[in-house]
Each structure stands twice: as C-alpha cells, then as structure tokens.
Nucleic acid binder design. Structure first.
Lengths: 327, 327
DNA sequence: GCGCAAAATGTTAGCGCTATCATTTATGGG
DNA sequence: CCCATAAATGATAGCGCTAACATTTTGCGC
C-alpha cells in the first residue's frame, strides 16, 4: 500500500480512503490512486484491515449439510443480499452434529465474523454461551423459538407437520404412518414429529409406535423405510414423510414394487424439493420459503450490522400445503 | 491475551505458544495457561495471528454450485483432510460464471487464503494472473489439462464421454442423441460433448446437430430436453446425457409419457448421483470419484503447504462405466 | 557443585492496515 | 481580500498477535 501511495504521490491513508470511502476523496486524486493500484497489481490485505478496523465484513453461515440441496436456496438468498452490501459469506457444514457446529462457531468467532447464522434452534450450551458473549448479531433460521439466542427467522415445523397430517385426514386417510428423521440434534425433524403426533391426538387417533420409522435423510433410506413400515403395519393407507428426500425415495420404491400411489398408499412429503413435481405420481408436499428465509435473514443482519435495532426478533415466514397427485 | 498471561503469571508469548506449539511449553505451565484461558473465556484472534504470521491457515474452495449435490462430496473430502491438519475451508460458489469466480478469487486473496481450489480449467485471464502472482498452491479439479495454473486433479471428461458413447454403440445403439449442458464457461460439459463427438467420428457415424440439445442442469430441463430431442429426431434409439441430473429428468419424463426405457429409447447419464440407482429403470452412468478427488486435492495441498514440492502436478483419478437398466 | 547444552520462557519489533485527530487547502459571503 | 467554514489530505498510534532473537532455567555428567 505504501508503494501505491508513493506511485500516486499521496499518503497511504488516502489510498485506504479511496478503497473504503471513495466519496471522501477528490475525483482527480481517486483516479491517480486507482491507476497506481492497477499498475502495482496491489491486492489490499483485509486481514490487516480487519484487525485495524475491528470488523471483518464477513458473515458466517452454518447449515447441516450441502449434500441435500435443501439449504442451498437459503444460502443463496443470504449471499445475494449480503454481498450486495459488501459483506462476504463464509459457509460451514455441521453434518447435523452440535459438536461440529460448536467447533465451527469457535472457528468463525476466532476469525472475527461480524455476524453468525445457524440452522435450527438446538445448540450446545457452549455454542450458546459463546454467541451470547460474542456481542454480534446471531440468527437461528429454519425454525422458530420463543427464546432465540438473538433472532429467529423461519417457520413453525410443528405447525407445518400438524397441518399436513390434518390435511391427510381431511382427504379421508385414517391410518397415517410417519417417516421421520433422526431426531437427535435435529429440532426441525423433532418438531415435525411432534406436529404429526399432535394432529393425531386432535383427530382422536391413537399414535402407534410401529407406524413410525426414523431414518437418516437420503433417497435409498426412504425406500427401505416405507417397505419396513408397510411390512410392520400393512393396513396403513397414508404415510407422511418428514422430508421430501424420504418421500421421494418412498415413491420410487413403490414404483419399483408396483404398489400404486396413492391408491394403495398415499405419500406426502415436506420441503417442496424440485424433484417432487417431476415424479409419477407428483408429490404432495409442504412448500417452504427457502430462498425467502435467506433474504429475510440477510435484511435483518444488514439492519443490525448498521447498528439499528432489528425490527423484529422473531419472524414467521409461514408455509403452504401443495396438493399434487400422491395423496 | 495479555489478561490470560497475567492470570497465568506468564508472558503473552507463552500463551501464544501454548495454543500454537504446546510441545514447546512445560506441561505444568501449559495447564496453568489453559486454566486461565478457560477462566477468561479467551477467544484467540486469528485475524491478528494471520497478520503477524503471514498465513491464515485457511484454504478457499470455489465450486460452481451447491444446489446440485455433485460437488458436495468433493468439498467434504477436501474438508475432512484439511481440517485434520488444522486448516479451515472456506467455500464459495460461482454459479458457473467466470466473472463471479474472479471476484471470489479476489475476495479470498484479499483475505490471504493459504491455498486455493477451483473447479474446472476455464477461468478469466485476470483470475489466472492473480493466482500465478499470489504464490500460493492452486488446484484445478474435476478436469485435466496439460497446462494447469499449478496443479490439476480430476479425470478426463472427454475420455469419460467418449467411452460411454462407445459403450452405447457396443450395445447396438446407433442413433445416439446428446443432452448437453451449457458449454459456455463449463469446460467439463464442453469436454463431454467433444468426447461424444469424437466417439461418433470413430464409429463412422455422422454427427447431426438436431440430435444435440444443450440446457441448464436441472431435473425439469432434462424432461423438456428429451421431449424436444425426440420430436426433432423421432428415430433416436439412445440418448447420452452429460449429467445425471438431465438423465434423471429425462427418465422421469419418459415415465410420465409411458415411453419404455430402454426399449423405446435408452438413456445414459454421467456423475453417478445417488438417485440414479433408485429410479425405474436404474440409470446407466459413469461413476466419478467425487469424494476421492477431494481427498487427493487435500493431500496434495497439505504436502505443498508444508513446503514440499508436490509429487505430481497432474493427477488422473479415472472413472468407471456403471451399466444398469436404462441402456 | 560446576560447566555446558538443551529446554523453557521472555523481550522486542513489526505485520498492513484504519481510527483519530491535526493540518492544509478550497469555498464563498461580506 | 479576509475570515469562517467545509472539504481534502496527512501524521501518528495501535489493533492483537507471532517471528526472531535474547535470556533464564533445567538437567546431567563428572
């Protein structure tokens, strides 16, 4: 930077200002400096800048996985908004493990991220403590809680599952099974299971443990799980899967076995992944504002990073049941 | 850090050493310091550390997208290896746009990443210049080139497509269409198209432009594209899709329309995405060492970051044709 | 207990930038 | 043309850490 300054015949602080606050520099000077920067091939050192300014212009986002494209839209939404405001988004994946999440949070805090976005509301006590002490904006997304660390932006996974179960009942299905995720450390899938059970209770249908299967989220497991479910409870007339991945795997397994969907067994999913509408039969599911969560998270962070008190600490973005052919 | 040092009754450099090179500190002192760290809730400032040490213990990885789970395994492979060696992986997505890639490269260089991993071998001239001048290890992955910026680790997309086309011919198919990606800025899909054409030439089959459709990689486009292809060239007996996403979309469309696969039309894909083996019919495809690419990239980077000259600058990890039911 | 090498710890300077305040230069009204 | 004010630029210090070297302590053979 000193080289650039000399070449442009100004002091280094003017170079710094040309980069950070060009409106404070006379256009003529600015052009000189910009020319010198190009000539030197100067690449600003943001590590030094972050240290001096005590801010990194960096926001960390932690999602459980990127193997499943579920969170990709949300990350895109966050990125689109924040990059437009000069922030850089760093992505980490926790593999649905709160210990891994904790170590990511530490890593990002050590690198002085200006804000942090987590997926879900289940975190280790250490994670929560670290974030409360960090004094930076924190968003928990994809689920709601009355007592967020700082902000919660998402939708009620409980209500979504409850409504879908009630919807299945309204279509005449009574023996409704549940294909759930592994609930440990996954509050979204846990709330979805709770929603399913709550709906059954409202309907006066007894919950039966062997109508429930819990399995990791991947396509083959969806197939395995529905086969297991129907062999345990052959009289089921519908299955609600806590994730489209499982629902799709289940439909494909039914196709392979020649079981007609929905006449033998109705299948509903959740998340509205793009593949669902391509299957035969097309998948009934719950649409979630995946990209919207991202943009709203971004907007709130920008507000807070500008020092404004955020308008709302808890934002419910809702969901929508999409009835297609599989129910 | 000064607080920690005082509390532990040592100098700050000892605290630093306890964190960086604990083997240089007496166990007793180490325990004191660790206790003091815990007591203070001290979080090391790696921004300052990076500035002082002139290294960030950070590796940047740029992939085209995370919406398609294709690259997720590779990223996981890189991450698994590098985290084990104390490096942190930062992920960026370029959306198949070399200008976006360029700005990501700048952003990562400004943050002084210790190494950089790019997907593919097509980059803007500025990107290449920046990276050559940066003096850090650079890997281009998922494709090969005789003249990499620094290292290339992947497989020959050309050969993979050529072999698959020849394979289709060996099964008796002669009128083979091609479902390609958008070749602009995507060297992998471009090489795959070239491989398809080279195979046709070897077979003495004339390439026909209306047996080729190029489309963005998503499931619905696979369906649209195969319908378009068969309406333009109804006599096709096979289609080779440059990506499983398209092949899967195509098979689902055939299922919807009641077109039997492979008896009416055979369909082959490439990438071996997990969904392919769940479809009816199961998808014939090319298996690619997705995770393996990641680990090999990681290994080579570690070597280089330790200052060793890398064993090889170009690594061909190969591929494998997986014949299933769709051909 | 002495001397010496090795191990452990400390001192100092400086990484490259920006915040803060100081200074210089332009602007414009009387 | 002067002075008050604003705009533009500069000097200086310091962000929190580690590299490099300096010093002290320990261990050990004799």
């Amino acid at each position: 930077m000193v080289d650039v300054a000399q070449l442009a015949g100004v002091s280094s602080i003017t170079v710094s200002r040309t980069l950070l606050t060009p409106e404070l520099v006379t256009p003529a000077t600015r052009r000189m400096v910009e020319k010198a920067i190009k000539q030197c091939g100067y690449i600003p050192n943001r590590v030094a800048g972050s240290l001096a300014a005590n801010r990194s212009r960096t926001v960390a986002v932690i999602v459980p996985t990127i193997s499943n494209s579920l969170f990709a839209d949300t990350v895109q939404g966050i990125t689109d908004l924040l990059e437009a405001h000069g922030y850089h988004v760093f992505l980490g994946t926790s593999n649905y493990d709160i210990k891994e999440e904790e170590s990511l949070v530490s890593a990002f805090l050590e690198r002085r991220a200006d804000a942090m976005v987590l997926t879900g509301i289940s975190h280790s006590p250490t994670t929560k403590k670290l974030l409360r002490n960090a004094g930076i904006p924190v968003v928990e997304m994809w689920n709601l809680t009355p007592r967020p660390i700082d902000m919660a932006i998402g939708f009620s996974n409980f209500e979504a599952a409850r409504k879908m179960t009630l919807f299945l009942a309204s279509r005449g299905y009574r023996k409704i099974g549940f294909l759930g995720g592994v609930t440990e450390n996954n509050d979204r899938t846990r709330d979805r299971e709770r929603g399913y059970l709550a709906a059954l209770a409202e309907l006066g249908i007894a919950a039966v443990e062997n109508r429930i299967v819990r399995t990791p989220f991947d396509f083959p497991m969806g197939g395995t799980a529905i086969a297991a479910l129907l062999s345990k409870s052959p009289s089921l007339d519908a299955v609600f899967a806590a994730s489209d991945v499982l629902a799709i795997g289940a439909i494909l397994e039914c196709n392979r076995r020649g079981w007609p969907v929905p006449s033998k067994i109705a299948i509903a999913g959740m998340d509205d992944s793009p593949l669902g509408s391509q299957l035969s039969p097309k998948l009934t599911t719950v649409r979630i504002p995946r990209y919207g969560i991202g943009t709203v998270v971004g907007e709130h962070l920008i507000e807070r990073l500008r020092g404004q008190a955020s308008s709302k600490r808890i934002v419910d973005l809702g969901f929508e049941i999409v009835e297609r052919e599989s129910t």
